[in-house]
Nucleic acid binder design. Structure first.
Lengths: 150, 150
DNA sequence: AATCAGTGTTAAGCACATAAACACTGAGGA
DNA sequence: TCCTCAGTGTTTATGTGCTTAACACTGATT
C-alpha cells in the first residue's frame, strides 16, 4: 500500500474490526437473564419509541418483520415485554415492558451512562476545534459509507 | 442525559451501530461465489499470515478452533482454499489458496484499495494537527473499550 | 359480500459461533 | 518398546440472528 496515511487508515480499520468483534459478544446479564445484542437493541429502540408497531420497528431498525416478531417473542418469554392487542384494533401490536423489563432498561442505561461519562470526560478535555475535527471526521466517513451501499 | 457533549456522543454511537449493521450484510461476490464476512475475514488473515496453523489462526482471530475449522471447510468447498497436510507432520494443517482463491483475494483487495483511497484523499485534505486529533481519538476509545472488557 | 392492503406469525434455511467430546499425531519418559 | 500426554484438527449439538416466503387474520373500500 502506498497511501500517505497508511498507518492511520490501518488503525481506523483495526478499530472498526475490534468494535464489530466486541459487539457480537456484548451480552448483558441481570439477575439470571441473558440479553443478547439484538434483544438489547430492540429493547432500547422500543424504550425510545413507544408507539411503533412491529412493522414500523422493523423498518426503522432495518430488519424484516419476521426478525422483529421473533425477537419480541423471545423477549416475551424472558419476561421483559408483554405483547398486547387493543380490542378495538386487533390488527396491530403494542408492546409494553414488564416490571422486570423496566429494571433491565434501568440497569442497562446505567452502564451505558457510565460509558457515556467516559466519553464525555475525554471529549470535554479537548478544545472546541478538536471536537469539531472528530465530528467532521465521523460525518465524512458516514457519507463515504452511504455512497458505497445504496 | 446531561452531558456537555451529548450530541457528539450520540453521533459516535449511531455511527458505531451503522458500522455493525453494515458489516453483517457485507457480502462479497465474485463469479457466482458468495463470500460472507467471516469467510473474507479468515481469507484476509491467512493471506497476511501464511504460516499459521488452524489453532494459531483461532487464537489470533479471537475464535475457537471449531469455528476456524468450520469456516476453512466451507472455504474448501467453495474452492477458495485447499487444506493440506505435510506427510512429515500430519498433525498440523497448512492452508493454501487455489487459483480462484487468489482471484478472490485480488478482487477483494482491489475494492478495499478503493475504499482506502477515499479515506486517504479525505485524510490528506486535513492538516497534520487534525490527523493527530483523529489518531488520538481512536487510540483513546480503544483504551476505554479495553478497560471495559478484560 | 368480496376484495385487498396491512398486520403479525411461522417454518425452513443459512451464517456464525461456542462448548464439549472426539480421534489422531508425535515426542518424551518408564 | 510401550505408554502417556500435550497438541493438533474435527464433529455434534446448541443457540443467536437474520431472511424469505407462505400464512392467517383484521378492518376498511368498493
Amino acid at each position: 500500500m502506498t497511501f500517505e496515511n497508511r498507518e492511520l487508515i490501518e488503525q481506523i480499520f483495526l478499530f472498526i474490526n475490534k468494535i464489530i468483534f466486541l459487539e457480537k459478544r456484548n451480552i448483558f446479564q441481570l439477575r439470571g437473564a441473558k440479553l443478547y445484542p439484538s434483544e438489547i437493541h430492540l429493547i432500547m429502540f422500543i424504550n425510545k419509541d413507544r408507539d411503533s408497531n412491529a412493522t414500523r420497528m422493523a423498518e426503522k431498525l432495518g430488519l424484516t418483520k419476521g426478525a422483529v416478531s421473533q425477537t419480541l417473542t423471545r423477549l416475551d418469554k424472558k419476561g421483559i415485554v408483554r405483547k398486547t392487542k387493543d380490542p378495538f384494533n386487533k390488527n396491530e401490536l403494542t408492546v409494553s415492558f414488564t416490571p422486570f423489563g423496566k429494571e433491565v432498561i434501568e440497569a442497562y442505561l446505567k452502564t451505558l451512562k457510565g460509558i457515556h461519562e467516559q466519553f464525555d470526560r475525554y471529549l470535554s478535555s479537548l478544545r472546541e476545534e478538536e471536537r469539531a475535527v472528530i465530528k467532521k471526521f465521523i460525518g465524512h466517513i458516514e457519507i463515504m459509507i452511504d455512497s458505497l451501499s445504496p
